[in-house]
Amino acid sequence: MMKGSQRCDLRDIMVQAFLEATEKKINLAVLVSDSTSTSKIKPFMERCPERLINVGIAEQNLVGIAAGLSLGGFVSVTANAACFLTTRSAEQVKNDICYSDTNVKLVGLNAGVCYGPLASTHHAIDDISMMLGLGNILILVPSDPIDAKQIFDYALRYNGPVYIRMDNDKFPVIHGDDYRFQPGQADLLKTGSDLTIITMGSTAHHAYFAAEALQADSIHCELINIASIRPLDQDTIAKSIQKTGHVLTVEEHSLHGGLGSMISEIIAEQGLQTQFVKLGIPQGRFSKAGPRHEIQAYYKIDKNGIIETAKAMMGKND
């Protein structure tokens, strides 16, 4: 797959990774909670019906059973909407997965405001903050078909709890062929000297095209995509901030306990001198509901919002 090639739903990549893993004798059990369409799991269901477990609409049980299957020797993967996974079954995630250190991969589907008009019951703008509160779970966020495949391949072979934040949009490739996912390694999508933009998942695409557009205004952005929230590559982030002295974080998540919060910790702890702006859903608020692109525009986490914010930061507003 090459840069700019056809857009791809990352859930299809996920299912492909599951099929390949079973072919490679990984003892996989995939669990859904009536979320067969949400997870686009049908190809796996048809090929490996004995490995697909539907627990019905019961998210606490979904996570508990996943833990039990892993204690019985399976690599368990749950696949359901992030909003229900991370809050309905929060205690199961904490105790049965994290504290008990079971080999379970939790896939939070349709995270952020993917469910746009379905409103805040269905939005997951607090999933990263919830997971960050739990000590030992890896938090990974794919953004395109290239890193999605590598993240799933990695997670299915890693022994321990992993949370993978997923989107339901179709995304083009923004990574080069030489990209290799490494946990704890930031992903430098563009190098530049004027402004550091740090982002993850869906907003990586808006930021990518915004950064390209900003070149015309002679704003050279360094674009860092964070596919590995935990562990976090503090060095690359700090070095870039030191270089540019201006940092903008962009996330489809609450500004409380998400990517921006983590970057602010780095800035404060390392005493970095920088201008710092965070874009996301403001602290203490639920997101607006409506078509997703309108929500993104409202919170300025789309291409235009990022361009406008970046120009303002650099004193180049029209």
Binding site: Q60, A67, L69, S70, L71, F74
Partner: peptide, 11 residues
Amino acid sequence: LSVGTGLALSA
């Protein structure tokens, strides 16, 4: 009981 269910299912 959920985790026990998962273990029994694994068997």
